[in-house]
């Protein structure tokens, strides 16, 4: 009797500890940031968010994140396809390299891009001769975002391609469809759910990216200052309410995307 009582105490202890940890670590801080930003009233919140520089930073982030997501959709679809469908020397190596941006610290990624595109580098000089600059301008931010979100689309597309059986494809060929037509009409629609969820994850990651971007963006307010760097700047200059207002906007955006992805995935599994 006493041993069952003891084990019940133990399991109660474990349960409460784990739930408490979860609530204190994850739920509480997120509620806290929403609470804090609204604590000064809605008027103060709108004032902080309609600050021209803040607003521009958010818009710029959305724009560049969108561009880099589109680039990743193109590259990722192609790479996912090639890595699953073709056999060639070095395929295994490339396949394991895909995850490199997840394993690499973002600050290191930023430094790498900085070195590669800097004014002393080959790319930098070449761009300068052509009359435009990459580093500390918007193209550098896009490159940084593409780098850190590179694995998402590939990893979302690959399982779908592996699952696909060849019969529909063969049917299309037997009925005389060309390769290009088969791809557009048969294979692409099958890949589409993966492309969509991968793209959304990449987009939300690009919105949130800080480490890689802060080193290469130059961070000129209104021009190359993205939202997460703006938040960092506001924290550094002790304008916490300004920082939380932009945080709330960015956070809401990412949460909506995350829930949309979860919803789409659960619906796909349900069918």
């Amino acid at each position: 009797m006493s041993s069952t009582l003891q084990s019940r105490w133990w399991s109660w202890g474990f349960r409460s500890a784990v739930m408490l940890y979860f609530i204190l670590l994850i739920v509480f801080p997120i509620l806290g940031i929403y609470g804090y930003s609204l604590s000064a009233g809605l008027a103060a919140f709108t004032e902080n968010i309609t600050e021209p520089l803040a607003w521009k930073a958010v818009l710029l982030t959305v724009k560049l994140a969108f561009v880099s997501t589109m680039i990743n959709v193109l590259i990722g679809t192609m790479a996912g396809w090639v890595l699953i469908r073709y056999r060639f020397p070095g395929r295994g190596l490339l396949n394991s390299l895909v995850d490199l941006p997840f394993a690499l610290p973002t600050a290191v990624a930023g430094l790498m891009i900085l070195l590669l595109l800097g004014p002393q580098s080959v790319v930098g000089q070449w761009a300068e001769q052509l009359g435009f600059s990459i580093l500390f301008h918007q193209p550098a931010i896009v490159i940084a975002m593409v780098f850190v979100t590179f694995p998402f689309v590939i990893r979302a597309v690959q399982p779908l391609l592996e699952e696909m059986d060849g019969s529909e494809e063969e049917a299309a060929y037997t009925m005389g469809a060309t390769k290009a037509k088969t791809f557009v009409r048969v294979i692409l629609p099958a890949m589409l759910p993966g492309i969509a969820s991968g793209a959304m994850l990449a987009f939300s990651r690009a919105l949130a990216e800080f480490g890689a971007v802060v080193l290469v963006a130059g961070n000129i307010p209104g021009k190359t200052l993205i939202a997460s760097v703006y938040i960092f700047g506001e924290i550094e200059s002790d304008n916490i309410t300004g920082a939380t207002a932009v945080s709330v906007v960015l956070l809401t955006f990412s949460l909506l995307i995350l829930w949309l992805v979860n919803y789409l995935q659960s619906r796909r599994k349900g069918v």
Binding site: L207, A208, F210, S228, T244, S247, S254, L258
Partner: peptide, 15 residues
């Protein structure tokens, strides 16, 4: 996953 790292840090400073 959805929270920008900077915001994650800000939360702790806030609380």
């Amino acid at each position: 996953f959805a929270v920008s790292p900077v915001i994650g840090g800000l939360m702790i400073v806030l609380l």
